[in-house]
Amino acid sequence: MLFKYEVEGGNFSKAGFASSEIKKILKQINIDAKIIKRIVVALYEGEVNVVAHATRGTVLADIDDKQIYIRIEDEGPGINDINLAMKEGYSTASEKVREMGFGAGMGLPNIKRNTDWLNLTSNVGEGTVLEMKTFF
C-alpha cells in the first residue's frame, strides 16, 4: 500500500498530519502498539524537520505485511555535514522553531533509535532525503 502526503515548510500548524494519518492506518491493520509508536515518532520528527528546516516536502509511505518504508524528501537548504547533524544536541534551528518547543538537536538521533534502518542523503542548496524502515 502506497501513501503520499505534502508537507509545507514553516507551517507548524500542519506538522504531524502525515504521522497522524499513518498512525490510523497502522492501527487499522493491527500493528503492535509499541511498533506503531516507534514508527510515528520517527515520522513525526522527520515531518517537523521539513517544517522547521526546509521549504516544502513530501512523505511517501509504503506498507506491506512485513515492514513500513518511509521516504521524506524535501526542497531546502540541505545538510552540509550529515555526521554532525546526527549528533545529539547539534541544531541550527531558528528562534521561531525553538519557541514552538523544538530545536534541541534530538530529532535525528531519536529517528535512528526508533527505526530499524535509516538512510540520510542531502545536496546542499537543493534538499534532503530521509529514508527509514521499521519491521513489524
Binding site: 507548524f12 500548524s13 504531524g16 504521522s19 498512525k23 509508536k37 513525526y44 517537523v48 514552538m100 518547543g101
Partner: peptide, 11 residues
C-alpha cells in the same frame, strides 16, 4: 500550542 497535542498523540 498545537504541536504539544500532536506530540502527545505520537508519544
Amino acid at each position: 500550542n498545537l504541536q504539544a497535542i500532536r506530540t502527545a498523540e505520537m508519544a
